[in-house]
Design a protein around this nucleic acid. Sequence first.
DNA 1: GCTGCTTTCTTGACTGAGTCAAGAAAGCGA
DNA 2: TCGCTTTCTTGACTCAGTCAAGAAAGCAGC
Lengths: 162, 162
Amino acid sequence: METTWAHQLREAGLRVTRPRLSVLSVLADHPHADADAIVTGAREQHPSLSPQAVYGVLKAFVAAGIARRIEPAGAPALFELRVGDNHHHLVCRSCGAVADVDCAVGAAPCLSPSDTAGFVVDEAEVVFWGLCSNCRAGDRRVAGAAAPAQVGQHHNRGGAGA
Amino acid sequence: METTWAHQLREAGLRVTRPRLSVLSVLADHPHADADAIVTGAREQHPSLSPQAVYGVLKAFVAAGIARRIEPAGAPALFELRVGDNHHHLVCRSCGAVADVDCAVGAAPCLSPSDTAGFVVDEAEVVFWGLCSNCRAGDRRVAGAAAPAQVGQHHNRGGAGA
DNA sequence: GCTGCTTTCTTGACTGAGTCAAGAAAGCGA
DNA sequence: TCGCTTTCTTGACTCAGTCAAGAAAGCAGC
């Protein structure tokens, strides 16, 4: 496994280091982890890892196109390895869980705003807000509680709706 | 004009105060202003206004449904008075300018992800990233710059392109 | 128009996410 | 294995936004 990561890093012109491999494996396990969760996870393999190193690693990954940064309103940035396909996200208002959705309405649907106001659009980012199945069940009791907690691991690739 | 604002505030069950009227008029002039810009603008009418007061006012407005808060990735939150219609936004990667777009593909298109992964979706938020006409003109000189960089502080507000 | 209660604003301290910089450590090519 | 370059560690810092307590202002009733 790590051999694969190492290969990917080299492909991207990055050096292969323990922190980077740790971060990659955390991202593979937790597809929508925030920086803090990544630090925690990566420390299992590399206990001395500093948060700043993780920020640096993530920035390098994003710059190299290995990872993608998503920033749901009101929550810290999340990172995912799935890049290159134009997929979107479902975010739970209650627990902050994030799930992937393949492009919403057909081919590259979202790239067609009705009026571009002179903009040249190169990407459409869609966030679907709602409640995940867990919170729907729980929310009847808790009603509104549960802060924008972190990163449900629940992800599920939608079956290529497009 | 201000009479209208006052009326709207009362309708929403809020007291009519100078800070609130100032913020409302700034929002009317600058449809996608961030908190800082609002403070600056509102101080023209109310020089002693504190940033915290503005945060409080904005929070009250959002809670009352008078204003809406939008948070493009990598930029401070923006506020707009246009609420109640499900419109979306065009954001310029280079200067951070924001323009409104009416709902993208017909009726309430975006509310139909291909696979909801168990989520109950109640809102779809769409952000179109690209370059505004100003930056396209300028960018030919600056070339490669304007990477997925961070939505600089320069907002060019003003009528937001449109 | 005045009084008193309640909401709102001002002041100041604080939190959390993320950045910047300098020196130490580690990776890679020869 | 050597030496150069990149990356990591440590620590200070910025910026957006929140929290709390007391002062000021708005509104309803008289």
